[in-house]
Design a protein around this nucleic acid. Structure first.
Length: 690
DNA sequence: GATTCAGAC
């Protein structure tokens, strides 16, 4: 698909864009290979953060916590770890850590810093992300890592004692793992007064971060660093972006976005356009509309490109290919372009004012994906995307009055919108007993916490005192997956089908192994039938995995069978990791040699709470969950769709117009009481006929 | 016969 590349020319490079996003250069002129040490050093000194070097180092020396407010392009991410290193914070066997929310950013920043320091990656400077540890225990002094990896490291070293300074980058994004990490770092600080924390954040969040880390008590005699956090601001290097609003609210933001693109193309000078929409549906509709309108009005020179994370890699690459001469590229994107990817050459931004967000309802225990208004912070971030190469313009498809008076200042932190089962078990594993009293940067609702505790208790992971059980609780915590999946893996060891179950676990932990196609639905269904198992989707995954391995992991084979090759590579990676972990836990892998009943019993051992029963006289395939008698249906993508077996266990619910069960297997209801007698005791004689 | 924003161990 990358037809814009000439063979033999350089492919795009990943380069840190100073804010955790990744900028993809396509021109060889920005390659650093042409620069010697001297000019790299000059480049470093030209970054805005350079002027603040002394102030930053002084503040870190004298304050337990320093908050750096750094705008786009300030250079904070690449420079501050180097300043700390130069100032001696990595001496005496200590290390400097810098966390990022995203893997790609970790790799890009680490690579950039090794170039600037003229060292080899994995020696003095290294990085760790899942599946990839490019560090050397003896040599590495500056380490970049995802915040999720740092959380995992705490399981072995709860006080993170090998680090002298921990810099948490992009804290304003308030991702789940960043918030957990911040809460834990505050606790560690009390035990390790010598530890320094640097939090880099956007303006809007700085004050609340400072309040959170302010542990100074009145009249307290202070020793060591000041407890009250310091706040330092570093200006960015973005260009000015002029903001335009609509006069009246728009009723259809997709249509409105398309007509805005048309008028930009008509009236504004050259430069690419980035349009923020909510999902694949919006994006496909918008591209179709734009094509039609351009055709009917005879306008030429527009090249529209979709961008969302589920897009196959080859199609994603189109976004980074240089815009052909005399053409204007229009990128229709989800939120992926707001923080995760930085696009070069964008001069105009069209902001719909919406994004899809996950919300969790602890009462019904259902996670929903809904189109919701974005925050002011997001709107500013989106607008900023227009000012990276020259002054730009941002067209907001909402009124100025709405922006000023109705938009919330910041979004709801992820921790308040999520199922907390994984989070709670992680805290428990770190010895935090009083989960409900944990000091968070933003507290999740008590209902969510209690629901998580209930689920973990029902899995046998927590005991009556809400302490981790031994060995089950500790083992489940050790496995980096949803605790329900981890429990399934542990059960499979006893049932002698762990070889099969870790394959299923790996498939369930990635989005989808099928190619997301529209229009060729029929072929996809036929391909699926080749692997379909009467027992259900999980067993079907085993058939797919077997076929993939027999094809010698062939991408051609995947293509032929409508299977996502990259997803299968990931399945293999996760599976390898699970293999290592089970070995470490001392539970060997065993195959059940085709005894599918054992496999289904293991699945039931983890997912017994997700059991449903077909309504006796249902003509439309209506099921009711055994636990809450909720109305649910088998998802049309399941191999058991329209088969409608009497009793099933599902992996997850997706709710649209109905509640659909995704990934289901048939079960014998007696396995439920076998797997979780405590859970199904009451229902034993009422809802489960024996 | 209907779809899943983004991210991570």
């Amino acid at each position: 698909m990358s037809q814009f590349w000439k063979p033999g020319t350089e492919r795009p490079r990943l380069v840190d864009d100073e804010e955790g996003g990744v900028l993809l250069y396509t021109t060889s002129s920005s390659s650093s290979s042409g620069f010697g040490y001297g000019s790299l050093e000059k480049q470093r000194q030209r970054l805005p953060v350079y002027k603040y070097k002394t102030a930053i180092l002084y503040s870190v020396e004298t304050h337990a916590t320093t908050i750096i407010v750094g705008e786009t392009g300030s250079g904070k991410t690449t420079q501050i770890p180097q300043y700390l290193k130069e100032a001696g914070w990595a001496e005496g066997g200590r290390m400097i850590a810098c966390t990022q929310p995203r893997r790609l950013a970790v790799q890009a920043v680490a690579t950039r810093v090794t170039e600037e320091m003229d060292v080899k990656l994995g020696e003095e400077v290294g990085y760790t992300i899942r599946f990839e540890d490019i560090t050397n225990e003896k040599l590495t002094r500056v380490k970049f890592l995802t915040d999720g990896v740092l959380l995992r490291e705490m399981m072995d070293d709860p006080l993170l004692s090998k680090y002298s300074v921990i810099m948490v980058d992009e804290a304003h994004e308030r991702s789940l793992s960043t918030d957990i990490l911040l809460g834990l770092l505050k606790k560690i600080q009390r035990r390790r007064p010598e530890l320094r924390i640097i939090i880099s954040s956007a303006t809007i969040e700085a004050k609340s971060m400072a309040a959170f880390f302010n542990t100074r008590r009145r009249r307290e005699e202070e020793q060591g660093p000041t407890k009250e956090p310091a706040i330092l601001s570093v200006e960015g290097r973005g260009f000015n972006v002029e903001i335009f609003y609509v006069d009246d609210p728009v009723s259809d933001y997709v249509r409105s976005a398309v007509s805005t693109v048309m008028s930009i193309h008509d009236q504004e000078r050259m430069g690419d356009i980035l349009v923020f929409l909510t999902g694949q549906d919006d994006i496909d509709t918008a591209i179709q509309l734009l094509t039609e309108e351009a055709q009917s009005s005879g306008k030429q020179g527009l090249v529209s490109v979709p961008l969302y994370s589920g897009l196959p890699r080859a199609d994603q690459d189109l976004v980074f290919s240089p815009t052909p001469r005399g053409k204007r590229k229009v990128i229709f994107s989800t939120n992926i372009a707001e923080t995760s990817l930085t696009l070069e050459g964008i001069v105009y931004v069209v902001d719909s004012g919406f994004s899809k967000q996950r919300f969790y309802n602890p009462i019904s225990d259902i996670e929903n994906l809904v189109v919701a208004p974005i925050s002011k912070a997001s709107a500013r971030q989106r607008a900023g995307r227009a000012g990276r190469v020259r002054p730009g313009k941002c067209f907001r498809l909402y009124t100025e009055d709405y922006f000023s008076n109705e938009m919330s200042v910041v979004g709801i932190p992820e921790i308040q919108r999520s199922n907390l089962v994984s989070c709670v078990i992680q805290l428990k594993a770190l010895g935090i007993d009083n989960i409900l009293g944990f000091d968070w940067p933003a507290s999740p609702s008590p209902e969510s916490m209690i629901r998580a505790l209930e689920v973990l208790y029902s899995l046998g992971v927590l005991d009556d005192d809400a302490k981790l059980t031994s060995p089950t609780g500790f083992q489940v915590a050790e496995i980096p997956l949803d605790p329900l999946i981890s429990k399934m893996i542990l059960a499979s060891c006893e049932l002698g089908c762990s070889e099969e179950i870790i394959t299923i676990a790996a498939v369930l932990s990635i989005q989808s192994i099928w190619i997301p196609v529209r229009g060729v639905q029929k072929q996809l269904d036929e391909a699926k039938l080749r692997f379909a198992a009467a027992e259900g989707d999980h067993v079907t995954f085993l058939n797919v995995y077997k076929g993939f391995m027999q094809s010698n992991k062939s991408s051609k084979w995947c293509h032929k069978n409508f299977i996502n090759y990259h997803a299968m590579r990931k399945v293999i990676e996760v599976r390898e990791q699970l293999k290592r972990i089970t070995q470490r836990l001392g539970i060997g892998l065993k195959s059940c040699e085709g005894d599918i009943q054992a496999v289904k019993k293991a699945i039931t051992a983890g997912f017994f709470a997700n059991a449903a029963r077909l309504e006796p006289f249902s003509h439309n395939g209506m099921y009711k969950t055994l636990r809450t008698s909720q109305e649910v249906y088998i998802h049309p993508s399941s191999v058991l769709f329209r088969v409608n077996p009497k009793f099933i266990v599902y992996h997850s619910l997706v709710s649209t117009d109905r509640q659909y069960m995704r990934n289901v297997i048939t079960i014998d209801p007696s396995w439920l009481t076998e797997a979780a007698p405590h859970f199904y005791q009451k229902q034993l004689h009422s809802s489960i006929p024996q």
